[in-house]
């Protein structure tokens, strides 16, 4: 369910109508690229490999569409969040706190940490403009829901498989918490047929 929710939110064709922030989409492309380098080193399942390839392809297609096709409608004035303020601390943290000090593992850790905050430029734009297109809110809802569903999955795996990945869990909790405000607005406004707009 989490993967399907994630899949729905990475669909590049959504951006035909959603107003997505280029900076967030560049961060997601970086997230998938650094996380799925293990495509070259380990095979888990056909499902796992295909999903990784789809996520990578979708993230680059989205960046391409925003950058090339919708350059005219892309409003850089609202996309002012400084991504280096995310990438630099996250990069430093992944060197300091990781499971194993190896190149692939540090990149995986970087990816996990970066994903937890990659949506901030998008949320920042919404807080600045004070509103969001309904299609954009659906995109955000599924992107947030996906990690929340993983939290449930991790509780399950902890009890039934003894699996526990502290880095993924902490980052997943942070990621989900960042969406809480948005989830509240989505349920109280968008699901009741109103447009998402913030009080001035």
């Amino acid at each position: 369910l989490a993967d399907m929710s994630h899949m729905k939110s990475v669909n590049p064709f959504l951006i035909v109508s959603a107003i997505l922030v280029l900076h967030s989409q560049l961060l997601f492309a970086l997230v998938f690229t650094t996380r799925y380098l293990d495509l070259f080193t380990s095979f888990i399942s056909l499902y796992n490999t295909s999903m990784k390839l789809i996520y990578i392809a979708c993230s680059y297609a989205t960046v391409y569409l925003i950058y090339m096709k919708f350059k005219a409608t892309y409003d850089g004035n609202h996309d002012t969040f400084r991504v280096e303020f995310l990438i630099v601390p996250v990069g430093g943290l992944s060197f300091l706190v990781n499971h194993d000090f190896s190149p692939l593992e540090i990149l995986w850790t970087f990816s996990i940490y970066l994903e937890s905050v990659a949506i901030l430029p998008q949320l920042f734009m919404i807080s600045k403009t004070g509103e969001a297109e309904t299609i954009t809110t659906h995109y955000l809802f599924f992107l947030g829901l996906y990690r929340a569903l993983y939290l449930v999955n991790w509780i399950w795996r902890y009890y039934f498989e003894g699996f526990f990945d502290l880095i993924a869990v902490v980052a997943g909790v942070v990621q989900t918490v960042l969406y809480c405000d948005f989830f509240y607005l989505y349920v109280t406004k968008v699901l009741k047929g109103k447009k998402l707009s913030l009080p001035a």
Binding site: R35, K52, L104, E105, W108
Partner: peptide, 10 residues
């Protein structure tokens, strides 16, 4: 080029 751990999740 050392491998990372085996991560079975997406």
């Amino acid at each position: 080029f050392r491998k990372g751990l085996k991560h079975d999740e997406l």
